[in-house]
């Protein structure tokens, strides 16, 4: 396995198709690193409150919400990011009302959507550059938007030939392009569309951005139920004769119990093929991390802890 391990990079963007559990994995990564004693900032870019829900805390704002000694959460707010930027870089005093600034900002951001993206990426890179935290874990935009976000510094360089923003893109690109510091984590589930999108995204990221793909996390992997030998015995149990015998012992609901095992087996079989497709599509160089489906809990703090434990195991922590 080449490249810097995932957990040694200070800036990780976690993306994935909607519905694959991108936020859960980002939360799990943050939880795992914080549990090891590193200081971690987890940032939600879409500000839907899902990241806060993963830790069962109220939704944070742009100012980080400190959960404990090691873990803080924040929600990206591009207007607040612009305010911070102006304050730090242009010494423009921004006090109280920012009405005119907000209107001007809306205008510029609508005219050139790359501006919003760069304020997002810029803030995250800034936290890394200033070494405020050991790790910045970003619950980033979904697959459809992530390339635009990560490519924003280059896009801005193409559009803006001079000016402060252009010079700012240089140090951002230095961080984003450094595979020992920054990486992208694509989360997927072992299903047709998420796997296809993962492979397409891998190509788009390589083509249009300078960010290194650090790992692909396959979430909700179903457990293997039967070996070939036990599967044959299960087939016998499902036969009319087997079902009769089973029902005689365990009662009326028996066929439903056997049907559940059938369902488990066929779902597992269907999904396994996509893990294979993914493994073959990615090749040897990209680490593949498998996280099991959590039957007991689907979200919340308990699920986040379990995902963190599985991640630690998979990443040999």
């Amino acid at each position: 396995m080449s490249g810097t391990p995932l957990v040694e990079r200070s800036l990780l963007f976690v993306t994935g198709k909607g519905g694959v559990g991108k936020t859960s994995i980002a939360a799990g990564l943050a939880q795992m690193l914080a549990a090891e004693g590193r200081s971690v900032l987890a940032c939600e870019v879409d500000a839907k409150g899902d990241l806060a829900a993963a830790f069962e805390v109220p939704a944070p704002g742009f100012a980080p919400l400190v959960l404990d000694d090691h873990l803080s959460l924040m929600a990206m707010d591009t207007e607040a990011s612009l305010r911070e930027y102006l304050k730090l870089n242009l010494k423009i005093p921004v006090v109280g009302r920012i009405g005119p600034l907000a209107r001007a900002f809306d205008f510029v951001a609508t005219a050139a959507p790359g501006v919003k993206e760069i304020l997002t990426v810029g803030k995250l890179c800034y936290e890394v550059r200033e070494r405020h935290y050991d790790h910045v874990i970003v619950d980033a935009s979904a697959t459809g938007h992530i390339v635009g976000q990560l490519a924003a510094p280059q896009a801005i360089r193409e559009l803006v030939k001079v000016g402060l923003i252009r010079s700012q893109t240089d140090w951002m690109l230095d961080i984003l392009s450094d595979p020992t510091k920054c990486g992208l984590v694509i989360v997927t589930t072992p299903e047709e569309m998420p796997v296809a999108e993962t492979l397409e995204l891998r190509d788009a990221v390589a083509r249009e951005t300078t960010v290194d793909l650090a790992a692909v996390v396959v979430n909700r992997v179903l457990p293997e139920r039967f070996s070939p030998r036990t599967e044959a015995a299960f087939a016998r149990l499902k036969s009319p004769e087997g079902l009769d015998a089973f029902r005689d012992v365990f009662g009326e609901g028996s066929s439903a119990v056997l049907a559940a095992a059938d369902l488990a087996t066929s779902l597992r079989r269907n999904r396994t093929q996509y893990v294979t497709v993914l493994r073959e599509g990615l090749g040897e160089t990209v680490p593949l991390v498998l996280i099991p489906y959590l039957f007991q809990r689907s979200d919340g703090r308990r699920a986040t802890r379990q995902i963190a434990e599985h991640l630690a195991e998979e990443l040999d922590r």
Binding site: F234, L237, E241, A256, V257, F295
Partner: peptide, 21 residues
């Protein structure tokens, strides 16, 4: 059913787990 008890036991255990899950 003409199945080895040890093998059947494993199958039954898996069937039970799958249902519970």
């Amino acid at each position: 059913l003409g199945l080895e008890p040890e093998l059947l036991d494993r199958v039954l255990s898996t069937v039970g787990e799958s249902f519970e899950d």
